[in-house]
Structure formats: structure tokens, C-alpha cells
Design a protein around this nucleic acid. Structure first.
Length: 288
DNA sequence: CTCAGTGTTCAGTG
DNA sequence: TCACTGAACACTGA
């Protein structure tokens, strides 16, 4: 579920698992189960093998590991990427000699198997394993000498957990955009890390219709939007992107409810339609 | 069998 | 050049 909170949570988990460790294995060796944008799997492997992890970083939906030498690996989870960490003392078998867990559904992967849809395994010298899981394979990996200063990260806009424009600054930025605010919120060159559910949640909480042209929002609306954006993201990060711990009143819990045409939020009908190329859930009764 | 899906990129249009 | 739109990508689960 990779929007900013999920990516930030993954980054923290990976840093905790690998910090101060040397990397002893990267698998698979040659097969590219995940797309490498700037390096072959072999180059990627060579860049990481033997290097020590000294930290990590993130901007928007990208994150990277800081090593004791360059370049560094940069990750993007695409639509369905995630991470699984194992801190076993005993290593799993080598990739080539084992079958991936093939059971679908919520079944636990047996300890002696690699999880279904695992695309990359990073092993540290103490046996800790970090596995990138990505069913749909929209995830991307690249190498960068300085992730923040080169594309695609250098093209990102404001990360809400770092510097973020004031309401008055936002009015000016949005004033140039004729597209629906929903589409503009998804523009990573403006709001790095905002994804589909966050955009919907933020519009809902600030009571703004996703159809409004960005340039036509009032200062009061932009101020409310800004406040909701920061609070939703900060809160989601605080609970480790665990949606079960999102506040009860969030639209999130209702937007994909089970009964198809009966989804409501406190009695108000939720409408689903495509805006800015993405399915949008909103509450016309409340969002103007 | 068909279709939507928590993202990004690229081609085409205005 | 910029802003914007829609298709493509890969694959599962409803």
C-alpha cells in the first residue's frame, strides 16, 4: 500500500533491520524480477555486496539506503510493492534451489520458503533478510550517487514531512492549475508522496469537492486543505501506516466497504467516479 | 471471462 | 514549453 506513510514505515523497518550491517548477499543474481532503471541486476548486486548500511532516506514515495560507499540503492514500490523483514539466525536456502511460496490468500509463508511475489532479497552478514515483495511488478530500483540531486527524486515537489508551503504560497502554486484539485494533488512534482487514498481523504476532511478547479479554490479552502494534508500524513505515519489504527471518522474505512453500491459515511452516500484518471471516492453531501 | 487497482511514464493534444 | 489526458505497464482477485 505504498503512499508516503507506507513508504516511510517501510524505510524505518528496513533501516532498523540493516543499519550498521554489511550486506552479504543480493538475490536473485541475474534474473530481473524487478525493473532496474539505471543498472543491470549484476551491477546492482556489485554495488551493494560488502557495503555497510549507515542510514537511509526518503522523499515522496522513493526511499534509499545510505551505504559506506557510492552509489546507493533507490527503491520505489510502484502500486503493490512492500517489504518483509526476517531476522532469523539461520539463513534461508539460496534462491536458485528453492521454490517460492505459491499459496494465495492470507496464508503465512512457511519459514523455509521465499514469500510469493518476492522480487529481491537483501541479506546482511548477521542473517537478517529484507525482501521486496511486489505482485504487480510496477516497482523500480535504481542506483544513484546522490539520490536527492538526480532524477527522478530531484523533480519531486514538497514532501509534507519536510518543508511545506504556507497557505498563501499554496494559493499561488494552485492558481496556475486548471485541472481538478484531485488530479493536482496527485502531481508528484507538487506534492511528493500524496497518492490516491490520501488525496481523497484530504479532500473529504477539508470538505472540498474533487471536481473543483485548483485555481478556483478560496484561501479558506486552501488553508483547510493544507491542514488536512499535513494531519492525515503525520497521523498515518505515526501509526505505522496501519489502516486499522487510522481514526474512525476517516473516509478511508468507508470508501471500499464491502457492499458495492451502499457505501456511506455516517449516512451520507459515497460516490465513486474517475477524476484525473483515478477512481475517486467522495461525499457530495459534504464536499463543495 | 472481464475489469479494476494505494503509481509512473510517455505519446498526443491544446 | 507547459498543462493536461489517456493509454500502457503486469498480474491478481473479485
Amino acid at each position: 500500500m505504498p503512499e508516503l506513510p507506507e513508504v516511510e514505515t517501510a524505510r524505518r523497518r528496513i533501516e532498523k533491520a540493516l543499519k550498521d550491517q554489511r550486506l552479504s548477499d543480493i538475490e536473485p543474481d541475474e534474473k530481473d524480477l524487478i525493473v532496474y532503471d539505471t543498472a543491470s541486476p549484476r551491477e546492482f548486486r556489485e554495488a551493494l555486496l560488502g557495503a555497510k548500511v549507515i542510514g537511509s532516506g526518503r522523499k515522496g514515495k522513493y526511499f534509499w539506503l545510505e551505504l559506506d560507499r557510492r552509489p546507493w540503492p533507490v527503491f520505489h514500490f510502484g502500486m503493490t510493492g512492500n517489504v518483509e523483514v526476517r531476522t532469523k539466525q539461520k539463513r534461508l536456502p539460496k534462491w536458485g534451489g528453492l521454490k517460492l511460496h505459491s499459496k494465495s490468500g492470507g496464508k503465512e509463508t512457511p519459514e523455509n520458503q521465499i514469500p510469493r511475489f518476492c522480487r529481491l532479497r537483501i541479506v546482511a552478514e548477521n542473517g537478517t533478510e529484507v525482501m521486496i515483495i511486489d505482485p504487480r511488478r510496477f516497482g523500480r530500483i535504481r542506483l544513484a550517487r546522490n539520490p536527492l540531486s538526480e532524477p527522478p527524486i530531484s523533480k519531486l515537489g514538497f514532501d509534507p514531512l519536510e518543508k511545506f508551503p504556507s497557505g498563501k504560497e499554496l494559493i499561488i502554486i494552485l492558481g496556475k492549475r486548471r485541472a481538478p484539485i484531485k488530479a493536482v494533488l496527485l502531481d508528484q512534482s507538487l506534492f511528493a508522496g500524496v497518492g490516491n487514498w490520501i488525496a481523497d481523504e484530504v479532500l473529504f476532511q477539508s470538505r472540498i469537492s474533487p471536481h473543483n478547479k485548483a485555481s478556483e479554490l478560496t484561501l479558506a479552502q486552501v488553508t483547510a486543505l493544507r491542514k488536512a494534508l499535513l494531519s492525515v500524513i503525520i497521523r498515518a505515519v505515526k501509526v505505522g501506516a496501519d489502516s486499522k489504527r487510522f481514526p474512525r471518522h476517516w473516509l478511508f474505512h468507508a470508501r471500499w466497504g464491502k457492499v458495492k453500491d451502499a457505501r456511506t459515511w455516517e449516512g451520507h452516500k459515497i460516490r465513486h467516479e474517475t477524476i484525473g484518471g483515478r477512481t475517486t471516492a467522495w461525499v457530495p453531501d459534504l464536499q463543495k
